[in-house]
Design a protein around this nucleic acid. Structure first.
Lengths: 327, 327
DNA sequence: CTGAAAGCGCTTACAG
DNA sequence: CTGAAAGCGCTTACAG
């Protein structure tokens, strides 16, 4: 609670000029008498001096921080992106997180983060804002919005293909896809990957979109509709994890045995997948690396350069209890 | 990507002094000729002027932002605290979130947030740091560490009592408590509430601590031990939600039917509770209000005042499928 | 080896 | 009604 100790206070206490204190304290390579240096450091310690980051930022025209905007903290997918971003930022500065979703209105976070408080902005999952209004370099993460050419995404098509391959490898031939909301481009790419994989294998392409958002409730509803349609399915690929959990509920409600009657694979892995019963087989995507790469790109690229990158780190199918050989 | 437009640019374009621009743009009650005002506003618009929050903060000695430090984004409990805090802060400024846990080392976030970047710091779930080093007003949220007299918590004892009451109301007499890690004071209070409730009802006090942290794995392990001990239980209260999910897994593995053979109640409610099968009966605590109240207290109280508050908002048992009448 | 001065982009008395 | 000036707490050429 000490607070308010400035360079001037330390300088006065040590009997030197503030400029010298500044140099010494930042460990700058400056020729000072060892005695003077010691005095300065000692006084800074005694007074509990802590540099004012705000003043430093103003002078340097550099905030030393990055912003990361997340739609919601309820989706475990984002937790992994955050971890990657924070790790990558460790040397460059800090990461300030904000939600674009609940709790306050659309533009509030924009005001908060677009006034020099951060050196760059990572926007995860889109957020319906007008990017042209941003005065800070930004980068879309895991979402490529039309007209915005600064984004980094994952290989969503490949994830779907891996899911189909896994099921096909177990002998499944009637496989459906429960896709994300039409607005999300990740869901468009995952659907496209699914269709490709089916075409390659000569399988019928059966797809059911999730109404509304990428949620458990949406997944449950989509699964219900598939069951009603009675398509003779033996496998389902669900485009995201919470929705897959919802699908599992619908199956449980309908008395359908997983994986005996139907195998389920979800895209994206998280602890949740291992917690539900039956535990979910998933395609693990490199979310941590996505977060880390996003910080790297933001920190090193020119603010006006276009960035279109697909993070091509290894992905893998995590086999759990929701998939098995076709009956 | 415009960037770098300052008050001076607008002033030049409008042919006035920067001080006038500052006054007009902040909507200050200043007597300006309507024509001049219009010219200033027009130029600000044309140049896409955005105030530099850093410079403003330095001048005002006020950051206009609060920091919220969270141990992990993997626990849904914190998501609710965040929503409450953001809503309450909406008029006061923004909320900057940071993790104290994974991704970087212990003190990194401290440097990031303790240099004038925020006007106050909310620290959720403790974080093993030395509070005396903080130069910014802080408040512990949901954790009362010995020796720190600035905290706001929930009524953890009452939550346990409500859980026991619910089970007792269903006829249960042999009830165990799976508690949190010894280090967490929330777990101490919940255990104490459990013991009290049992004493009041003349029930035996059976408690099993969760090894390690408040996690699903810990809950599973604790449940396993309880099963091994073969105590003739009919009900279990689990001190936190992820651990309860773990406990459910242990029961499933052991072939114990929930709620037919054993009823389970978890403290804390979140979507996850409705997603697992069987869905979990929980005690819903006012986490959103906790977050909101924390911001309020931080914003309005003197930095040196001691704060010891228990948020006494309504709590309720959310009955789902994991509890039923004793066999 | 150390100091004096300018300036980062604002806000706010104080003048006119 | 509008402007000139000081100052928030730093950093960094430029001097000595």
């Amino acid at each position: 609670m000490a607070g308010r100790v400035t360079l001037a206070d330390v300088a006065r206490a040590a009997g030197v000029d503030i400029s010298l204190v500044s140099r010494v304290l930042r460990g700058e390579d400056v020729k000072v008498r060892e005695e003077t240096r010691a005095r300065i450091i000692e006084q800074a310690r005694v007074l509990e001096y802590r540099p004012n980051a705000i003043a430093r930022s103003l002078k340097n025209a550099k905030a030393g921080a990055f912003g990361l905007v997340i739609p919601t903290f309820n989706n475990p997918v984002y937790a992994q992106i955050i971890i990657g971003a924070e790790a990558a930022a460790a040397r460059l500065g800090s990461v300030m997180l904000t939600t674009s979703g609940e709790g306050w209105d659309r533009t509030n976070w924009l005001e908060a983060l677009d006034g020099g408080r951060v050196d760059g902005l990572l926007i995860a999952g889109g957020s319906g804002i007008d990017h042209s209004r941003l005065s800070v370099p930004y980068l879309m993460v895991n979402r490529a919005v039309p007209g915005v050419d600064r984004y980094v995404v994952l290989d969503d098509e490949k994830a779907s293909r891996m899911a189909v391959d896994h099921l096909a490898g177990l002998g499944h031939r009637r496989i459906a896809f429960i896709g994300g909301p039409a607005g999300a481009d990740t869901s468009v790419r995952r659907l496209s990957g699914f269709e490709q994989a089916c075409r390659d294998r000569g399988l019928e392409q059966i797809a059911e979109p999730i109404p509304g958002e990428y949620t458990a409730v949406g997944g449950r509803e989509a699964m219900r509709r598939l069951l009603e349609a009675d398509l003779g399915l033996s496998g389902v690929v669900v485009a995201n994890l919470p929705s897959a959990v919802g699908a599992l509920q619908a199956l449980d409600d309908a008395g359908v045995q997983v994986p005996e009657d139907l195998s389920v694979v979800a895209i994206h892995d998280a602890e949740l997948a291992g917690l539900v019963r039956p535990s979910l087989t998933t395609v693990q995507m490199p979310l941590t690396q996505l977060g880390a790469r996003a910080i790297e790109l933001l920190a090193t690229s020119s603010p006006s350069a276009s960035i279109n990158e697909v993070v091509a780190k290894p992905m893998q199918v995590v086999v759990r209890d929701s998939t098995g050989p076709v009956a």
